[in-house]
Design a protein around this nucleic acid. Structure first.
Lengths: 246, 246
DNA sequence: CCAAAAGTGTTTTAGTTACACCCATGG
DNA sequence: CCATGGGTGTAACTAAAACACTTTTGG
């Protein structure tokens, strides 16, 4: 059956109200690149295209609860930074019927990403590339490990673009970056995360002081190990600093 | 089960899905106070309580279109700054059934507010008082002209609180304040708006330069009139600066 | 001329950047 | 003892705030 046939046979008139769904943008940073979890669609519509993990909101369930459920069931992850992003509701964004989707974004340190992905064969990691292009934010590109552009389903390119834009905007003003790092991290790790998200390079001393002055982190006295150079001190979030993971 | 069969079975229990609504926070500034439009409920639930103007999203209608429609039908206003705020979806927020509400906020200069309110008898203007109380943002209080506290329906106090918080957060970084001013305004008008929203006082020269340096406005050469003191120059938004009203 | 508020120039301060340097580790 | 990256002090620069001041109107 082609997509066209599928859409013809689909009875949209029986839906009197819009449906409500949740889509998740699961993001992390790997090797200086922003990555996100995508799922290849095996069925119509958008068969073969890549989509954000999502699902419908059940009655009696808040959107946040739905997001947590989908995060657990579809991606096998829990206990992470999870925040509502924006609600997308153009009537034609889903060819089946009017689906209003409450997009959330979730941030995890990459180690936890990897573990979950090993258990879920249908998930893939895409490198997300959003050029700056002023305020508007250029078109998002999702790339596989070979650098080929992935074709996204629905309006999920728009959702991804907004997620990156939001992430960039909040980086300076909130401790959101720590949701992408393990409990103990070096200042270099933190700088790498910032540089990956913003797509710029910082000078080490300036970045270092800016972070320490922000008052979010404290040194632990412990040092990293396994490096061939001088080990860096491990830092951690101060108690009482909320990055949304709690 | 084929997708078609799945969709048929999903369709059968479509009455069990949450409804989708839009609630509007219509805000302005009057005499150094933030004000919002409220509607007194004549029926259960929350009979006699005050509520934000709102309505259900029709199928085939985007949330933004629904917000525009409600703005026009219920409040008699159009062509104003209108932006999605947050989606509230706790299952018990409406005692009738599970209603997911996409809250929007709308900003207008007070003159346009007044005109519309004269034509709609069921609407009232409330002074909105949100104490600072750090990041969390204290509980919102809606007051009538006599200063009596109005009792709000549903979770509308929470929505109002978030709207004020968002307004405060964006004031410095975006030209949002100009949606609350007429096309021609003095720097004092602009300062009054900022002070009302943030609840702080600024020194005139500092505020003046900060605004001019931001590059959003330009002088017109015209002067205000009707004052007993030196008339101030009238400023206007530069072309190309979007404050969402366009 | 006076009161009131508009509007401007100058100094002070604070915060950020740039640069140069020293330190600790593995090999 | 050398290469590599971690970490720190100082000077230069820049942006904002504080203050004192001049200007323009109505009465």
């Amino acid at each position: 059956m082609t997509e066209e046939e599928f859409l013809r046979s689909y009875d949209a008139k029986s839906f009197e109200r819009p449906s409500v769904a949740v889509d998740l943008v699961l993001m992390s940073v790997r090797d200086g690149q922003v990555v996100a979890v995508l799922q290849q669609r095996s069925e119509h519509p958008y068969q073969g295209h890549w989509a954000l993990p999502g699902g419908f909101v059940q009655i009696g369930e808040s959107p946040d609860e739905a997001a947590t459920r989908i995060l657990k069931d579809k991606a096998g992850m829990d206990q992470c930074f999870l925040e509502q992003l924006y609600t997308f509701g153009a009537p034609d964004r889903d060819p089946r019927t009017h689906v209003i989707s409450i997009a959330h974004f979730a941030l995890l340190p990459f180690e936890r990403f990897e573990k979950a992905l090993d258990r879920k064969a249908d998930l893939a990691l895409a490198t997300i590339d959003v050029p700056w292009k002023g305020e508007a934010g250029g078109a998002v590109r999702a790339l596989d490990r070979q650098g080929s552009k992935l074709s996204l389903a629905f309006d999920h390119d728009e959702i991804l673009g907004l997620a990156v834009k939001r992430l960039r905007g909040r980086l300076d003003y909130s401790p959101i970056a720590f949701a992408l790092l393990p409990a103990l991290f070096t200042l270099r790790d933190l700088q790498d995360v910032h540089q990956a998200i913003l797509g710029v390079e910082f000078r080490k001393p300036a970045f270092r002081r800016r972070m320490l002055d922000a008052g979010w982190i404290k040194g632990t006295g412990k040092k990293e190990s396994g490096q061939t150079f001088r080990p860096a001190e491990l830092y951690t979030l101060k108690k009482g600093v909320k990055n949304g993971t709690d």
